[in-house]
Write a protein that binds this DNA or RNA. Structure first.
Length: 474
RNA sequence: GGCGGGGUAGCCAAGUGGUAAGGUCGCGGUCUGCAAAACCGCUAUUCGCGGGUUCGAUUCCCGCCCCCGCCUCCA
């Protein structure tokens, strides 16, 4: 099946054709965090979706050149720095660091570049772009000294969001004192300095000020990926106005189609509601870790639902993630044991399976249908487990399954980390328990099992020997 | 009001014009000293509601209801 994605621009599933088919390198721009506070798990749902996208493109033989911006100057960061009474850069630094820690915890592949809006390379580029837009009549400086984009001069404005500009209504979310604009939909390219900004300002041909939010993405995207990029992603809430503005600015400057495929991720809900600090359902990655869950468990929970469907985050869902991963872990452990038994005779080899091994990746070709892909994984697990129960899976077959897993795990990245060493205390208790069992002292044996359990380990008596595992562990 | 996305078992969630993947939870069974893991069986006569097209619709069309989001700086 051909690789296809749902393009927000056309609202249709489209076959993916990179801009440059020969080069096999895909330019991907993904809107990153605004570092004014700790990013929440809803933000990370979008980043995990982008991670899945990149990894699957790579599985399909493409090379991704991915850029994720860091917005380190805007109203919220300035306000935060002022309230904390520290310089802007110092204020944002802590959240940048936290962001990168969370990225690692969730096993999200790092983008190739993380440009920051305040980097002079990009502020220069923003000023250059704004100048070009003014020269083309697409932007103007208003009486308040700020520079605005003139949306009436850009006929395509509204195409991405499918908005009729005459119907734009103010939701009252933005202050209403912007009488200086020609059209209510005109958005700021350059925001003139005011006292609230303190020492946060850059010089420009239009006086001191700072970039508008949208222009930074246009500047960084075109600077690092060129005038035209293959895929641009973000959350659905970015469609309007942010991505609409990016199109207007970028195409207004370059005159070329800015993005070939727009992919947008649906929101994460918590207990069926939008996540909000006021509702007390606002979680960061460390919040989830503090509840005893691991990064890979959260990764699984955020990954398992198709990106265009709203995902409801619940603790029950986290439990489900843990159990499902445990099932994968057990399966891999069994396969590895059999793969090592070179000379053991099996009654018959049973590598045959009604599940085609390519079903997993073919599902991902279909607009990243991860739920269907995981369905195939679990069906495969059940079938190979059955074969192993019946002693019908030989070492070669086990190895083949492990190779398959290795391949799909380049996309999933859900394997448990290397086995944690069994603590000597646990090993000692297990040994004592074996002695008790040999003497058929079941009471003592069960008591020792409880003690082992209290230490976070589970003991299982198999035919060969008792096995110790740590459930729910990284 | 405009524009999107969604409504499938207790929960999460695929899917197709031909009679419902998978995960999780629960129950019963095999195995086990007992467990655990694994496997087997059971758990949606039905896919928000009402019409229509069709031999046949959960899947296509029309209308309606509900949930979520966006409508100027939230992923």
């Amino acid at each position: 099946m051909a690789l296809r994605f749902f393009n927000t621009y056309s609202r249709e599933l489209e076959e993916f054709e990179p801009r440059d088919p020969a080069a096999r390198t895909i330019g991907i721009y993904t809107c990153g965090p605004t570092v004014y506070s700790h990013a929440h798990i809803g933000n990370f749902r979008a980043y995990i979706f982008e991670d899945l996208l990149q990894r699957h493109l790579e599985l399909r033989g493409y090379k991704a050149h991915r850029v994720m911006n860091i917005t380190d100057v805007d109203d919220k960061t300035i306000r935060g720095a002022r309230e904390a009474k520290v310089p802007l850069a110092r204020f944002t630094e802590q959240f940048k660091q936290a962001f990168f820690e969370d990225v690692e915890t969730l096993r999200i592949k790092r983008a190739d570049e993380f440009p920051a809006a305040t980097d002079q390379r990009y502020t220069d580029r923003m000023i250059e772009m704004i100048g070009a837009l003014i020269a083309r009549g697409l932007a103007y400086q208003a009486d308040d000294k700020s520079v605005y984009f003139r949306i009436n001069k850009f006929p395509n404005y509204g195409k991405l969001a499918h908005f009729d500009l005459s119907q734009l209504q103010s939701t009252g979310r933005v202050k209403h004192d912007e009488y200086d604009k020609e059209h209510i939909g005109d958005f700021a390219l350059w925001k003139a300095w005011d006292e609230e900004d303190g020492d946060v300002k850059w010089d420009s041909p239009w006086g001191p000020g700072r970039p508008g939010w949208h222009i930074e993405c246009s500047a960084m995207a075109t600077a690092l990926l060129g005038d035209q990029i293959d895929i641009h992603c973000g959350g659905v809430d970015n469609i309007f106005p942010h991505h609409e503005a990016e199109i207007a600015q970028s195409e207004g400057v370059t005159g070329k189609k800015f993005v070939r495929y727009w992919l947008h991720c649906a929101h994460l809900l918590v207990d069926g509601q939008k996540m909000a600090k006021s509702l007390g359902n606002f979680y960061t990655v460390p919040d989830v870790l503090a509840k005893g869950y691991t990064g890979r468990e959260l990764r699984y929970a955020l990954l398992r639902v198709h990106y265009r469907v709203p995902l409801n985050f619940t603790w029950e869902g986290m439990h489900e993630a843990r159990e499902s991963l445990g099932r994968i872990d057990e399966w891999l452990t069994r396969l590895r044991e059999i793969a090592q038994e070179e000379n053991v005779q099996r009654s018959t080899s049973n590598a045959q399976s009604p599940i085609e091994k390519s079903d997993f990746e073919n599902s991902l070709d279909d607009d990243l249908n991860i739920s269907a892909a995981l369905g195939f994984l679990f069906e495969s697990i059940r079938e190979t487990n059955r074969a192993m129960d019946e002693n019908k899976l030989d070492a070669a077959s086990a190895k083949a399954w492990l190779d398959w897993w290795k391949r799909i795990n380049t996309v999933l990245d859900l394997e448990a980390d290397v086995e944690i060493m069994i603590p000597t205390e646990v090993a000692q208790l297990a040994k004592e328990r074996e002695n008790a069992r040999r003497e058929k002292n079941w009471e003592r044996s069960d008591e020792l099992r409880d003690q082992i359990s209290a230490l976070g380990w589970e003991v299982r008596d198999t035919k060969d020997r008792p096995k110790l595992t740590r459930r729910g562990a990284e």
